[in-house]
Design a protein around this nucleic acid. Structure first.
Lengths: 211, 211
DNA sequence: ACCTGAACACCGTTCAAGT
DNA sequence: ACCTGAACACCGTTCAAGT
């Protein structure tokens, strides 16, 4: 069997299958994808090319439609906040995806569009062009970090009461990992926006920020 | 040759060799380590056990001596800030290590000590035990995110002037990736500390934070 | 154009065998 | 206790061969 009448495979089918595998196993491989789709490993490669390319496709896939959801008439800081919330929501749906995406740089044009919207908002907020990417980096640091915290919380449920008493006390009093990641996100988003607004007004006041 | 008079290998030798490989290649493997140390692959496994264990050893190694550098007489917020700066400095020395460590949870007792110091500072600052781990999560999110930004900046040097004009403008005006990661870190640290202090005083005022 | 099978160079982990 | 070689089950990627 080779070259069937209607194609067995498509990029879309591969991407959704891969995401299902990741949600379940926390990782993917070409053999696994091929098995799931009942197809040979090399067929998958014919549609996708490389592992890196597939990861970029995943990044675009989970963010699909994000841009349309943003209210472009909202003030700049609200737009930024919306983008961060959408980003976070994507990873809440697929927490195990975070470590896979965090190590690589954005390539996909659809994803760059979101960063374009961020740059637009920051410029409108008064950030000087030279500082826009630093603000983008900061927003991204927080977002990526929060996403990672959903699967790989820094500290898990293991602290010896006598070796690490304060940590133990904190672990004892804390809610579930999901809840505390959620609380951390809310607190973090609040302070991040506070900081961005403060920085924006400083920039608008024409202050230099040589430290 | 088996069981030589003086051992060829030690955990310390393996860890430093691994770090050198990561600094150069961005990743490591047992075959590479074995080749570098002129030894067989299975010998390395005899000292280390598993890849996950080696990663935990790397985490402890780069943070070695951090705790002693912290001035424990300083106020709680300064102690937190010191810890974040030390964390950041470690990754600035070994940027390619960040993606490797970001996906896993802390296990090593020496590293837990640092989190103990953080919990201690936050409790002293007035955080209620139930919210300490959320604050720890937030600090960790920011730190991990900033570390990742050193090797894998969200947006690299590719934005089409007509497709993404604002982003292009920002990229054009921005400093080098290292410099903008640095600026983002400074700005982020400043706002993070601002937020933590605000939250601490709210907690001390006995306010609940049900959103 | 689309799929297959086979091949290649790489992994991590285990384990019996040597001193 | 420490090291070796061989084996096992996994990878990603390439490529000639089929329709």
């Amino acid at each position: 069997m080779a070259r069937p009448g209607t194609p067995l495979l498509s990029v879309a089918k591969i991407v959704t299958a891969t995401l299902e595998i990741i949600d379940k196993d926390g990782d993917f491989s070409f053999p696994k994808i091929a098995r799931k789709l009942g197809v040979s490993q090399s067929s998958v490669h014919h549609h996708v090319g490389s592992r890196a390319e597939l990861i970029e496709l995943l990044r675009a896939h989970i963010g699909e439609g994000d841009l349309e959801q943003i209210d472009l008439t909202a003030p700049w800081d609200h737009r930024i906040e919306q983008i961060i919330r959408l980003y976070r929501a994507n990873f809440a749906r697929h927490p195990k995806l975070a470590p896979l995406l965090s190590a690589t740089t954005v390539q996909h044009p659809d994803v760059l569009e979101i960063y374009e919207a961020m740059a637009d908002a920051l410029l409108e907020g008064g950030f000087r062009p030279a500082n826009v990417l630093s603000a983008v980096s900061l927003i991204d640091s927080f977002s990526i970090g929060s996403a990672l915290e959903l699967t790989a919380p820094a500290v898990a449920w293991s602290a010896n009461p006598t070796e690490n008493p304060k940590l133990h006390q904190a672990l004892d009093a804390a809610a579930s990992p999901e809840e505390r990641a959620e609380t951390a996100f809310k607190l973090g988003l609040e302070t991040l926006m506070l900081g961005l607004r403060a920085q924006a007004s400083r920039e608008r006041a024409g202050q230099s920020n040589s430290s």
